[in-house]
Design a protein around this nucleic acid. Structure first.
Lengths: 190, 190
DNA sequence: GTCTATAGGTGGATAGAC
DNA sequence: GTCTATCCACCTATAGAC
């Protein structure tokens, strides 16, 4: 077992949830301070500026996401099963009444500092890269069928899942997300 | 020709663009005042609170959207052509580097006042209702094919388009949206 | 309807003691 | 590392003159 999470990690945990539920412009250091029972000033020791906190947030989120994708690769071999598990990650987020961190930031794109913009896109690039691999594998072994390039399908898939989760969350209906995700994946059946 | 837009309408025009590019939490009365060259206090005469402005914004947006849908019904008879034009409305928004007003608000759902939440969902309900009509028409005359209910397909469609536009805007690539939209509609070909 | 002036609050951020 | 104290910019909103 790891030691008790250090303060920086706990700050990130709280901030992550806040961004996923309220957006980067929808929370303040005061919110984190209250939840962690420290003063706002203490937070600035760990993350000098809010933009720094935001950047570290995306980095950690992507690292965790990439780990989850590696786990899928290790546990599943069938391409369609991999996609099913990929969608399940999203579904868990919706079930927790959250939005994908980077999906949320994509909406706030117009107000984000440059470093956060770049890291947000890097997250989507990583997602699409992984999906392209799975799609090509599935096309090769005839378990998945699609027209056009794997890259186009991957981008379409990410957009559909992000959009579905955004709207499902507004209705508080996980079923809405699940139905849309299942339908989207069904369109790739061989 | 209509007379010069009155002040309330001009405020709404400016605020609409601000919400679509920066989000409801990403702009202030000061931004509108600067663009309109009036003082912040003047704005409160027209919209006492920001929540009022937000509510009027959604109402007008939905009314304009519904009008656009009626125009599609009047000009096109083929169901697939209607869907094509529906997607074209979204595409124009992306081309203008904006996000759908209600798609943006869906992301900010967690911080919105109740009236705005309700009106935002009403917008999506209206979208889905119109789409259900088109889908049923297309299924009846064999121009569109899908499994499950028309309602499920409509919800999936709205989510896919909103998500695609959100991500495409972050990349500044209209082509990304167009490719995803075309692919989604292609999945409904009879 | 629009203005000046201002209230009252919150935002992110810093200095310096402990 | 965390605190107190504080700064200053900005926010939404109101009162009252014009």
């Amino acid at each position: 077992m790891a030691a008790v999470a250090d303060t920086s990690q706990r700050i990130l945990d709280i901030a992550e949830r806040l961004v996923q539920t309220r957006g980067f412009n929808g929370f303040s250091y005061a919110d984190i301070a209250q939840a962690l029972k420290v003063t706002k000033a203490s937070l600035h020791y760990h993350f000098p500026a809010k933009a720094d906190l935001g950047a570290r947030l995306i980095e950690r989120y992507e690292a965790n996401f990439v780990r989850a994708l590696a786990k899928i690769d290790a546990q599943a071999s069938d391409a369609r099963e991999k996609l099913r598990r990929y969608a399940a990650i999203y579904e868990d987020v919706v079930r927790d009444n959250r939005m994908c961190l980077c999906g949320m930031l994509a909406a706030e794109y117009g107000t984000l500092p440059k470093p956060m913009r770049d890291e947000m896109r890097h997250f989507f690039d990583a997602n699409e890269k992984w999906l392209v691999g799975v799609l090509q594998q599935g096309r090769k072994d005839k378990t998945i069928r699609f027209s056009g390039t794997a890259s186009e399908v991957a981008q379409s898939l990410v957009g559909a899942l992000e959009g579905a989760m955004m709207i499902a969350r507004s209705y508080g209906e996980v079923g809405r997300f699940k139905a849309a995700a299942d339908r989207t994946l069904a369109g790739l059946a061989a």
